[in-house]
């Protein structure tokens, strides 16, 4: 590589930028949807009937016990064979790489987040919930006013770690041809026979993003911990 800056202009620069944007979209959307899915799963397991708890537990264990790459392959290559027939009409789960990527990340993140939230629920002192019931809060109010704020404090560090893990997993999606950062830089590296340079730069970019996310997480913890002292 004679001049690294040369790559930032023109066609290459646009491709790298679009890759970076796609990586960030996958990361943020996957984390947000995964948080929602994980929270719903944890609530359903806690308040729902027993069989639902068992079923969801089985799903979570399967997702946590298999590699993300295999899940991505299953969704992307297996999806079109997964058809639902209803009265003559049939619909198959045919996804383009980006859709498969978002769906895969959401399911993967949801399983891990649900375990975080489950641990968070369990860590809230029973006395707090009993106190809420005693002063006349109903189940929904207790969840919103007592459980959620307390749990946010408890699970925030683990959630930051999980979202860092997800950022790193987005690189795996390049294998099913999602056009994210690694995919785009890989193309340029292959074309110019500059593999080491391409992967070194990729590593540095991801490292910077991870450090940034870690710092933001620690800042958020420091900010939120003021509330912990105010309330305890």
């Amino acid at each position: 590589m004679t001049s690294l800056l040369g790559y930032l202009g023109g066609e290459d620069g646009r491709n790298i930028l679009s890759g970076l944007v796609n990586t960030c979209v996958l990361w943020v959307v996957g984390t947000l949807l995964g948080t929602v899915l994980g929270f719903l799963t944890a609530v359903a397991r806690r308040y729902g009937p027993r069989p639902i708890d068992w079923l969801l537990k089985a799903c979570v264990e399967v997702i946590r016990g298999t590699p993300f790459l295999v899940q991505a392959y299953l969704l992307y290559f297996g999806g079109p064979y997964l058809c639902l027939e209803l009265g003559g009409a049939s619909a198959c789960l045919t996804l383009d790489p980006f859709e498969a990527g978002i769906l895969g990340l959401t399911i993967y993140a949801g399983a891990y987040f649900s375990e975080l939230f489950r641990a968070g629920f369990d860590a809230i002192p029973r006395g707090h919930i009993e106190a809420a019931t005693t002063v006349g809060l109903d189940r929904w109010q207790t969840l919103r006013r007592i459980i959620l704020p307390e749990m946010t404090m408890l699970v925030l560090p683990a959630m930051v770690n999980m979202s860092i893990l997800l950022l790193k997993e987005t690189a795996v999606l390049s294998i099913i041809s999602v056009k994210e950062l690694k995919f785009q830089v890989d193309i340029i590296g292959n074309r110019d026979y500059a593999f080491v340079e391409a992967f070194t730069i990729l590593a540095l970019v991801y490292w910077a993003l991870v450090e940034l996310c870690g710092r933001a997480g620690r800042y958020a913890e420091a900010r939120l911990s003021r509330y912990r002292f105010a309330h305890s």
Binding site: A171, S174, Y206
Partner: peptide
């Protein structure tokens, strides 16, 4: 810990 394993392997 801060970089994707996929990229470490390829590097």
């Amino acid at each position: 810990r801060g970089t994707p394993l996929l990229i470490q392997l390829l590097l």
